[in-house]
Design a protein around this nucleic acid. Structure first.
Length: 128
RNA sequence: CAGGCUGGUCGGGCAGUCGCGGUCCUGCGUUGUCGGGAUCGAGGAAAGUCCGCACUCCAUAGAGCACGACGUCGGAGAGUACCCCGGGGUGGGGAAACCGCCGAGAGGCGCGAACCUACCGGAUAAAAGGGCCACAGAAACAAACAGCCCACGCAAGUGUGGUGAUGGUGAAAAGGUGGUGUAAGAGACCACCGGCGCCCGCAGUAAUGCGGGUGGCCAGGUAACCCCCGUCGGGAGCAAGGCCAAGCAGGGGCGAUUUCGUCCGUGGACGAUGGGAGACUGCUCGUCUCCAUACGUGUCCUUCCCUCUUGUGGGAGGGACCAGCCCCGGGUAGGCUGCAUCGAGCGGCGCGGAGACGCGCCGCCCAGAGAGAUGACUGCCCAGGCGGAGAAAUCCGCUGGACAGAAUGCGGCUUAUAGACCAGCCUGAGGA
């Protein structure tokens, strides 16, 4: 996931977490808020409860790697609906440390479907 | 071969696909949140933050006190970092890391290799003091419970005195054995042994060791108690610090009161015209937006209540507007820098040294984010583990890699760590 898709400013994080709408999953929590900018920006977070620095890094890398192939679908839908952009925050939960890439990806598609950012799940994956 | 000790090394490898960050180069009818290429991209502990140094800011005439840390000897690090003086050096001074490294000594401990020593300054000891020593015990540094002895009080018994030999207590009760001596005893005295101090000699750079002489000095321990002696020590930290700097607030300045028409009527509304400011836009034109001097009993919008001619008036509340631009200093958000290689730097070879390490030559340039890059998947292989087959070599299957993630740099320490390898040494057993 390239840096240009990332949410990086501290103020943005605060704003989204305060006013955005959140969706929970055992592995990860999604917080979403519409923005004026015509693009998707994603912030990835792992708190102290996730574990040590190694575990936090592992969780964030897993989320970014799982997120990467989903970005084209999200931006496509953005173009179709001519809708506003979205600022998203993904918050890792402790169980994510032991999860595989496949687990993480299905968790994300599940969350995006529930948040109505994706219309249907991709072909060979199903939300749990 | 088994068990053990010490030191060191490594801590998965290769290939492919997809992906991320830095640096450099490069392409363009498209200058991009663009495309292409090259190259580099975590650790031995990156961790804990227990310390030292560099670096930065603050404080600081000099000296001392207080407080804190440390304490066998020699060496390496290092005559380095750093400080001082000077125009100029072959100049002067000179470190540190909560006991780090090498070697030695002393004490302790283990069969031994080894290991440990805040148990290595001082308790009369280069020189001076204070405190404390639980329980038990008569008494813990001054002392007489029992016992022993003598004298006196007639005696039994008791009291006064002497005694540290005997008993008991205790971690510890004043060096041990034998003798002399004595009322009984005691280093009170003597011989030998042990300890301590002093003197001399020898060995060693030294700590210290050995030998001789000498002093009855032998009345303890504790300085991770105060204290004394010696040495060292300003404080805070990269969120240090430096530069730039939206917005808001502050200070200063510039800033348009045009004309005509219509309507209500001492002033306004609307339209036109001209004027001012900003944006598009670097400039001209043009277009668009805003402004009309005004913090007032202002204008506009709106909610509720009363009046009630359903329109007006009054009251209470809410919202919007009354420009814009320029300059100034301080400075918030934010940005840039510090910050990524030229250093007590790393690697190789040679030489010197017992070693820490030093010298010489050659080569190298080696991560750098700021919501934080170094990852994911697949295949093959490898150390190791488990199971099976086999007399064995070996083969087959399954499994399989810990602790852990840079954030100013370097150094010391501590802690975590699956497993593997190498070297030296010790003990025991067996063989030649």
């Amino acid at each position: 996931m390239q840096r240009r898709f990332r949410l990086s400013r501290s103020d943005d994080f605060k704003r989204v977490r305060r006013t955005g709408k959140s969706y929970a999953h055992p592995l990860v929590v999604l917080v979403a808020q519409a923005s004026e900018q015509k693009q998707i920006r994603i912030g990835v977070t792992a708190g102290k409860t996730t574990g040590t620095a190694v575990h936090r890094n592992r969780a964030k890398r897993l989320l970014r790697e799982a997120m990467r192939p989903l970005i084209p679908a999200l931006t496509l839908r953005l173009a179709q609906d001519n809708a506003s952009g979205w600022d998203l925050i993904l918050i890792a939960r402790p169980a994510l440390v032991t999860a595989t890439l496949e687990d993480t990806r299905s968790a994300l598609t599940n969350l995006f479907t529930r948040a109505r950012l994706l219309q249907s799940v991709p072909v060979d994956e199903s939300p749990e």
